[in-house]
């Protein structure tokens, strides 16, 4: 089963994300980051931020409420992270209300050492209440052929 090319250019329905203090703290704890900007609100405010600041990869947690339709038919054990980029216009802080939308930008493929690899290029674009694009989370997902990797 390979990835359905007819999804190229597709976008999922927009969804809302509220950046919250508790989710910032739990994310920072999971990545082992004790930076007080992510844990201590008075400290973050003393540094000029409205509230807790989100770590640089926090937007990885902005996920559509349903799985991307182009990923649904795939075998989840063969899905791997390939490349990831965050393009930011400003730092995210607790209290931000974002409107996010997941886009399928392209699908490419190449022959790997032990079989065919497909590259699914997705962008999650997050806009704030003023309509400004604040973060783009560009992710290339690799779909490996059965039996590749594993060492």
């Amino acid at each position: 089963m390979s990835v359905d090319r007819s999804f190229i250019g597709a976008a999922m329905p927009p969804f809302e994300v509220e950046v919250e203090k508790g989710t910032i703290r739990r994310f920072a704890e999971a990545i082992g980051d004790d930076n007080p900007l992510y844990h201590d609100e008075p400290y973050a405010q003393s540094r000029g931020f409205a509230s807790l600041v989100a770590p640089p990869t926090f937007a990885a947690s902005f996920r559509p409420p349903t799985r991307q339709p182009w990923l649904v038919p795939l075998d989840e054990g063969r899905i791997l992270a390939g490349e990831q980029a965050f393009i930011n216009r400003r730092r995210l802080v607790a209290g931000d209300a974002l409107r996010c939308q997941m886009h399928l930008v392209d699908i490419t493929e190449k022959e790997g050492r032990s079989g065919r690899l497909e590259f699914i290029i997705q962008e999650l674009r997050a806009h704030d209440g003023a309509g400004e694009l604040v973060v783009t989370n560009r992710r290339v997902v690799i779909y490996r052929a059965p039996g590749t990797l594993g060492a």
């Binding site: 990545i31 640089p56 990869t57 390939g82 990831q84 980029a85 393009i87």
Partner: peptide, 26 residues
């Protein structure tokens, strides 16, 4: 893994820095 690299990045640049773009290849 990228988040761990992000911690190293923050330590390198300090908290007054703003990360405009951060990309990784796995």
């Amino acid at each position: 893994t990228m988040a761990i690299v992000g911690r190293c990045l923050e330590q390198a640049v300090g908290e007054s820095a703003y990360v405009e773009e951060f990309s990784s290849q796995f």
